[in-house]
Amino acid sequence: MSKVYKAVVTVADRFVPGKLRPLWEHPAGPKTIFFWAPAFKWGLVMAGLGDLKRPVESLSVPQSVSLAATGLIWSRYSLVIIPKNYSLFAVNVFVAITSLYQISRAIKYQQALKEKETAKPSAQ
């Protein structure tokens, strides 16, 4: 741990109320990277939610597939590590859900395009 981080934690230690002590002292609590990594990963979820308004033709299927796979893999991992990291689990479930939804949008769009192409020759 860096000296600055240790100093900040030491100062903050004095102000943590007794009721929040168990969370503060938890092996995956705010004193560790196990807390901060999932906290910052919520940015991916917010970006995924922002992409829900994105035009479907501009979605990247490979990107969505990789995010969905990452979310699923890390969701599983977060439950087998010690200590179990439920915040990591939650964020990765949401990463996977938003990505799977984007994949479904892209697949429906591609199917609709194919249906239009097959319908054109019969209309002539």
Rank of each mutant, 00 (worst) to 15 (best):
W36K: 00
T32L: 07
I33R: 00
W42R: 05
K108I: 05
A37T: 07
F35V: 01
V91S: 06
I81C: 00
P55G: 03
A37M: 04
A123D: 13
G50Q: 04
V8Y: 07
S78Y: 05
S104M: 03
K41Q: 12
Q124Y: 08
Y109G: 02
V61M: 14
V65P: 02
S104F: 11
K31F: 09
S78P: 01
P27Y: 05
Q111P: 01
G29F: 09
V80W: 06
T32M: 03
L72G: 06
F34I: 01
L79H: 13
Y77V: 04
F40D: 09
V56H: 14
Q124A: 06
V11E: 04
S87K: 01
V9L: 15
Q63C: 03
L44P: 03
G43D: 01
L88N: 15
M1S: 10
V8W: 09
L79K: 14
Q111K: 11
T118L: 13
A47Y: 13
E117I: 03
A112K: 07
V91H: 05
K31Q: 15
F40S: 06
G18V: 10
D13F: 10
W74T: 00
P17L: 11
G50W: 11
V65W: 11
P55K: 15
S2F: 02
K41I: 01
L113P: 05
A119V: 09
V9S: 10
P27I: 00
A28K: 06
S66L: 15
K6W: 07
S75M: 12
Y5N: 12
S75G: 11
F94H: 05
A39M: 15
V91M: 01
A68D: 07
I81H: 00
V8G: 01
E115I: 04
M1K: 04
A123R: 12
Y101E: 07
V80A: 01
K41S: 13
L49W: 13
P83R: 13
S66V: 13
A106H: 10
V45Q: 04
A7V: 08
T32W: 08
Y5T: 12
S66D: 03
P17S: 14
A69I: 14
F94S: 07
A69C: 13
T118S: 15
I33C: 02
L79S: 10
G71A: 04
R14I: 01
Q102M: 10
N92P: 03
L79D: 02
T98P: 12
N92W: 03
V8F: 10
R54S: 09
A96F: 12
P62D: 06
A68L: 04
V80K: 02
R105I: 00
A112V: 08
Y101Q: 11
S87Y: 11
G50D: 06
F34D: 13
A119D: 03
L23D: 04
